[in-house]
């Protein structure tokens, strides 16, 4: 089965074609970062206005790149939530209408399920069951995965998502938008020993997270350091390093704890923050020391993309699930309410 996937939940337009025999045949992502940079964050109306200009040209592009005629598509998958409702509507309406015109089945995919299954696009891919850490600008969740659509939330952030904490702290450090990856770059030049940030909620049982306190700590550290430091650039790098260490440490501690509590051996990381190099190094080492193994999507598939939607949609379509002649995206959509796919 060959599925076209469309992702428009936030500020990236992603389109891809996944074939269950031939794998990922083409994928393209258009990022709106430049549009939103002037505002320091995503402006929902501008995001919607751009998705409607980019989606169809990207669909043409991936069909061309894969050398496919559009008659060879067997199904259409689109992100139906959670996310910005106006942005979701564009991809859902285009996707559902394409499927209608092609007379093929359509499926609305949960954005986080897309992220969660993205590591299954890699070789070797992890065997089920596993624990997943979904870590992005909008989410920080630990999920026990026993099958496709069989998700149990083990813990999640009670306030800021990890990626959000990265972006907010980057803003305090006066880094350009979007700040998360910039902060990680700056951290490479930082001294890990100069500042010591807290590791929130690691000193008590449980698998929930809290990252909002870190930006306050960062703000105070910046004030102190700039008051006493002769080299403000070095101080910023040192703070970035200490912040990153704190987030990475916290995530590693909770993931190790999640594996112990569930008895799983495999951990997968997904979402934009899972592209962070320090996080990958530290996580792999820590999980290996537990006798387990960590899996990651390739960096291009960590951030929002159509490939993960095409892949997740393909699993569900193959199991016979599909949508009626309706598109009805949801801004909020709890992941543990998804229908299970019985065949896997």
């Amino acid at each position: 089965m060959r599925v076209l996937g469309i992702e428009t939940s936030c500020d990236e337009t992603g389109v891809a074609i996944f074939d269950d025999q031939q794998g990922l045949m083409a994928h393209a992502v258009y990022s709106q970062v430049d549009i939103h940079a002037a505002y320091g964050g995503v402006v929902p109306e501008l995001a919607s206005r751009d998705h409607i200009r980019k989606t169809l040209p990207l669909i043409r592009q991936v069909l061309d790149e894969a050398g496919l005629d559009k008659g060879s598509i067997d199904g259409v998958a689109y992100t139906a939530g959670p996310g910005l409702i106006g942005a979701l509507l564009v991809g859902s309406a285009i996707g559902r209408s394409l499927a209608w015109g092609w007379k093929v089945p359509a499926i609305g995919v949960h954005h986080m399920e897309g992220h969660l299954l993205a590591p299954l696009l890699e070789e070797p891919s992890p065997q089920l069951p596993f624990v997943a850490l979904l870590v992005s600008g909008g989410h920080t969740q630990l999920v026990d995965v026993t099958g496709i659509g069989r998700y149990r939330i083990l813990g999640e952030s009670l306030d800021d998502a990890a990626g959000e904490a990265f972006d907010k702290t980057a803003k305090l450090l006066e880094l350009p938008y979007p700040g998360g990856p910039e902060l990680a770059k700056l951290a490479e030049h930082g001294d890990p020993g100069r500042f010591r940030f807290p590791r929130p909620m690691t000193d008590r049982p449980g698998l929930d997270f809290s990252f909002s306190g870190l930006k306050t700590f960062a703000l105070n550290s910046i004030k102190t350091a700039l008051a006493e430091s002769t080299d403000p650039d070095q101080a910023r790098a040192d703070i970035a390093r200490a912040f990153e260490e704190a987030v990475v440490d916290t995530l590693v501690i909770k993931c190790r704890r999640a594996l112990r509590e569930t008895g799983r051996k495999r951990l997968i990381l997904a979402g934009g923050v899972s592209a962070n190099r320090r996080l990958r190094e530290r996580m792999s080492t820590a999980i290996a020391a537990e006798g387990g193994e960590a899996f990651y999507p390739q960096p291009a598939l960590c951030t929002d993309n159509g490939a993960m939607i095409a892949f997740a949609g393909c699993q569900r379509l193959r199991a016979g699930q599909h949508e009626p002649l309706v598109f009805k995206p949801r801004a909020r959509w709890p992941m543990d309410h998804l229908e299970a796919v019985s065949s896997s």
Partner: peptide, 14 residues
């Protein structure tokens, strides 16, 4: 945007 999106999808498909 709904009307434009539906039009894009259906027109491209056919």
């Amino acid at each position: 945007r709904i009307a434009a999106s539906v039009t894009q999808g259906a027109a491209f498909a056919a």
